[in-house]
Simulated scan of single mutants.
Amino acid sequence: MIKLFRNTRKQLLTENKFTKYLFYALGEIILVVIGILIALQINNWNNRRIEKEEEKKSYRNIKRQIEDDRDELTKEKALNNYLSATYKYANKIIRAQDYTKSDSLALMAMGLSQYSDFNSSGTIYETLVNSGNLKLLKNDEITSLIQKLETTYIRTNKLENIHWEIIINELSPALRGVVNYDAFKAVKPEKLFEVEMQNIFVESIYLTSAKDSVYSKALREIDTIIKRINTELGTVKD
């Protein structure tokens, strides 16, 4: 093709058809420009296609992580609710001063050492920023929701840390010499009915209630993010 153009130009110059040569040269330049523009357009289209695929890949990774978080949260929420119900029953026994249930109360007091402990699959937003993939996500609402979710995770972890501190600083000293851990029996049952032990149960009741509220909030936020991601991926089901 290039050889054909060269020969045509040479023929026109040889025949002194300068005007025709100018028109021909202009047409040739226009064809070259059009070719370049088409090549650029194809390249831009290909780059956009690659970016879109990378964006979808990021959305799928985020979705997979928060689905794992949802499973973990659901499990920890169930444990937290079970423990909360146990603490309320124990407080009821203490209020009634029902010494016939001393051994049951001893078991429940030992159960205060258990607590729900949610661990997220990772810091999604921070990972996106550090990897440079944040700029791939075109939906600002989703990135904002992810930030909001991670703030909720931080609140969850703070409550869990408080719970752990109660176990270490208050529960352990209160149960030492009061309950036989090996026999699961109350050695000094009267201590289980005193206000110090009751206060630990009450603290745990309020704490598990607060944790349940935050767990529920996180689960709602996860469901919202998944719906938004499904929309981006075009996988919304009727």
Rank of each mutant, 00 (worst) to 15 (best):
M1G: 14
K3Y: 08
F5K: 15
T8K: 15
K10N: 12
Q11G: 10
Q11D: 08
L13V: 12
K17A: 05
F18G: 02
F18P: 02
Y21I: 03
F23H: 14
F23N: 15
Y24T: 14
V33E: 03
I34N: 03
I34T: 07
G35V: 06
G35Q: 09
I36R: 07
I36L: 14
I38V: 15
I38S: 10
A39M: 08
I42E: 11
W45R: 13
N46F: 01
N47H: 11
I50E: 15
E53L: 11
S58W: 00
Y59G: 05
Y59C: 01
R60C: 03
R60M: 07
N61L: 14
I62D: 11
I62K: 07
D68Y: 13
R70P: 00
D71P: 01
T74F: 09
T74G: 15
L83W: 05
L83S: 09
L83D: 07
S84T: 09
Y87F: 13
Y89T: 13
Y89W: 06
N91W: 00
I94G: 02
R95C: 03
A96Q: 13
A96T: 13
Q97L: 06
Q97Y: 11
D98P: 05
Y99K: 08
T100D: 13
S102P: 04
S104H: 10
L107A: 02
M110Y: 14
G111C: 04
S113W: 09
D117T: 01
D117M: 03
N119H: 11
N119R: 12
N119F: 13
S120M: 03
S121I: 02
G122V: 08
Y125F: 12
Y125T: 03
E126L: 09
S131Y: 03
G132T: 10
G132C: 04
N133V: 01
N133C: 03
K138I: 02
N139I: 04
D140F: 07
T143L: 05
T143A: 00
L145M: 12
Q147P: 07
L149E: 00
E150C: 04
T151V: 08
Y153P: 00
R155E: 10
T156K: 00
N157L: 05
I162R: 11
I162N: 03
E165Q: 14
I166L: 12
I167S: 06
N169T: 05
E170V: 03
E170L: 05
L171S: 05
A174N: 01
R176T: 11
G177K: 07
V178K: 05
V179K: 02
V179S: 02
V179D: 01
Y181R: 06
Y181W: 04
D182P: 00
D182G: 07
A183K: 15
F184Y: 14
K185T: 14
A186Q: 00
E190V: 09
L192W: 13
L192K: 09
L192I: 09
E196L: 10
N199R: 12
N199E: 10
I200S: 00
I200W: 01
F201I: 06
E203N: 15
S209W: 02
K211A: 07
S213C: 03
S213L: 11
V214P: 04
K217F: 03
A218Q: 07
L219Y: 05
L219W: 04
R220F: 05
E221A: 10
E221M: 09
I222S: 03
I222H: 04
I225D: 04
R228I: 00
N230D: 15
L233S: 14
L233P: 11
G234W: 04
T235N: 08
